[in-house]
Design a protein around this nucleic acid. Structure first.
Length: 507
RNA sequence: GCCGCGUUGGUCAAGGGGUUAAGACGCCUCCCUUUCACGGAGGAAUCACGGGUUCGAAUCCCGUACGUGGUACCA
């Protein structure tokens, strides 16, 4: 069997959302599992939707996810060019359209957009709210089927704007086997005469995907479920142009759903979770859509959670490295039903990966965040120790800041309400004399501090437990964080005493 | 409307004729911890509905409902 080659074919029109990344991921995992190649092809056939920066953005996202293409417009390869706009320049698509034309499998259509609108309007009925350009209406339209040969020729010679449409056969059943869904059948009567070549000479997706998959020797084609209805067009094109034997095996991936229907960037804004892999700012509207990266997700967690949205290993394991995913991935364990995206679970994956990975892996990101908030870290070793201390309490990367700032900065606000109800002069006295005792301490470590604290508490006849919360508020400012004595040991004697003194004046 | 695809707890899901219907997230209770977490122990599903087939159906078949996608010179 020939070498497995798969492709991810995004159109550079905006941000890369969850579903898109999952499609890339499944492509990639499948290819790598089979020792095959992963290609990225840019489907920029719609010039009206061109968005500057979108292509670069896609590659940035892939890089962040750790998914490197074997071939692409930026990585090169033997089957280029990898942008359809460039392929069109070479006349690649036109020749195939002409072949179809010659064989009577396609025809010229001269209808203007206005005429198409009119048709849709005229034929619209309650039973048929959206009439298609198909066998029922095509003879009533202006095309090389309804016109005489001479009329067509005249129109063509005059340079009249035209498109090439596929002529869907009547009463045929188009069948193919989907790797995920099995046997799929469609009646040709029900599908319309899709445009293959647009008036500007660009191919539509339908022609381009077939031609390019053939030319690039694609063996397995993954795409979203939304393509299922037009699959018969592609199958027919394969039959006409290159033979069904050469057709890649199709896999139509289930949709990723949001809280209400297909996941959209609107959902993200509405419910407060990211939908794109990385931050994306629309150059036209300047509208920012949040990304998982900037939200504080680890790429390891991101691909892990995406992989599990529609696939599972069939075991209880849920945490997988990229290498493990490559090893275990198999298409027959991919679900056919859509999955609703659950942000809570996504966060859990991230938390697990934060615990799992060495601090070194993401230390720099956190350090930058501290710097951005005005705290420059000079002692890396000490910083790492602090991060280690708080990592169990963090689900997203920015949590490290809130969980660890107080190690580097005296808290500005103390949660006084937490101590007030049980605060009294005895306790105040305890801390006053403890400060004095602390000054005499020669060692400064966890055990020594705790010992001193408990000894004095016993002496003063106060339960140590009743003093711990106030002490925590003094050092941290709130009811959270690692063990108090650990904190005191880390921030040092001088700072500890300073914070107690400062708090005492506020309680 | 028509066509396609789907439907196991709130969510992700295992299981594909005989099971006490796994597990995870989230939620709730408890333990640990005199903070918050982590960790641990528990709690919650008549497998969308209705008909079949079968000794027996979450599992196979048909229908219905619901969801979702498509119905563009967008991908």
């Amino acid at each position: 069997m020939s070498k497995v080659r798969v492709r991810f074919a995004p159109s550079p029109t905006g941000g890369l959302h969850l579903g898109g990344v999952r499609t890339v991921l499944y492509n990639y995992l499948f290819a790598k599992n089979k020792g095959g190649e992963f290609i990225v092809r840019i489907e920029d056939t719609d010039q009206t939707r061109f968005v500057p920066g979108a292509e670069q953005y896609i590659f940035d996202c892939l890089k962040w996810c750790g998914i490197e293409p074997d071939e692409s417009p930026v990585h090169g390869g033997a089957y280029g060019p990898y942008r359809q706009s460039e392929r069109k320049e070479q006349g690649i698509y036109k020749q195939y359209a002409e072949q179809l034309l010659q064989n009577g499998q396609a025809y010229y259509a001269f209808d203007t957009p206005e005429e198409l609108d009119k048709m849709r309007n005229d034929f619209k009925t309650a039973e048929n709210p959206s009439p298609q350009y198909d066998q029922h209406v095509r003879m009533k339209m202006k095309n090389s089927l309804s016109l005489t040969e001479a009329e067509t020729k005249a129109l063509l010679d005059a340079g009249t704007k035209n498109v090439v449409r596929i002529k869907m056969p009547e009463h045929e059943v188009v069948q193919f086997t989907d790797m995920i869904r099995g046997d799929i059948q469609n009646e040709t009567n029900l599908v319309d005469d899709k445009v293959l070549l647009k008036a500007d000479g660009m191919p539509t997706y339908h022609l381009a995907v077939v031609v390019d998959d053939y030319l690039m020797k694609i063996t397995h084609a993954f795409r979203g479920e939304e393509w299922l209805p037009s699959a018969p067009v592609h199958v027919l094109l394969w039959k006409y142009l290159f033979g069904l034997d050469n057709m890649p095996q199709w896999a139509h991936l289930p949709l990723i759903l949001g809280p209400s229907g297909k996941l959209s960037k609107r959902d993200g804004a509405k419910y407060g979770f990211p939908v794109f892999a990385m931050n994306w700012t629309d150059p036209k509207t300047n509208e920012l859509t949040e990304g998982f990266k900037e939200k504080g997700f680890l790429p390891e967690a991101f691909i892990n959670l995406l992989a599990l949205l529609g696939w599972n290993a069939g075991t209880e394991q849920e945490l997988f490295t990229k290498a493990a995913l490559i090893e275990l991935f198999s298409i027959d364990r991919v679900h056919s039903g859509g999955a609703k995206f659950d942000y809570e679970k996504a966060k859990w994956f991230n938390q697990e990966w934060i615990k799992k990975l060495p601090i070194k892996n993401y230390e720099l990101i956190i350090k930058n965040e501290f710097a951005a908030k005005g705290i420059s870290i000079t002692d890396d070793a000490a910083f790492e120790k602090v991060l280690e201390l708080v990592k169990d309490r963090c689900t997203l990367l920015p949590d490290f800041y809130t969980q660890a700032v107080f190690f580097f900065k005296t808290p500005e606000q103390l949660d006084i309400e937490a101590v007030k109800p049980k605060w009294n002069s005895d306790k105040a006295a305890f801390f006053s004399s403890w400060i004095e005792k602390l000054q005499t301490l020669t060692a400064w470590d966890f055990a020594t501090i705790e010992e001193s604290f408990k000894a004095l508490a016993t002496e003063k006849n106060i339960k140590p437990g009743e003093l711990q919360l106030p002490f925590r508020i003094m050092l941290v400012g709130g009811k959270f964080g690692p063990p108090v004595f650990e904190i005191a040991a880390t921030i040092g004697k001088e700072e500890t005493v300073k914070r107690i003194t400062n708090a005492l004046s506020q309680f």
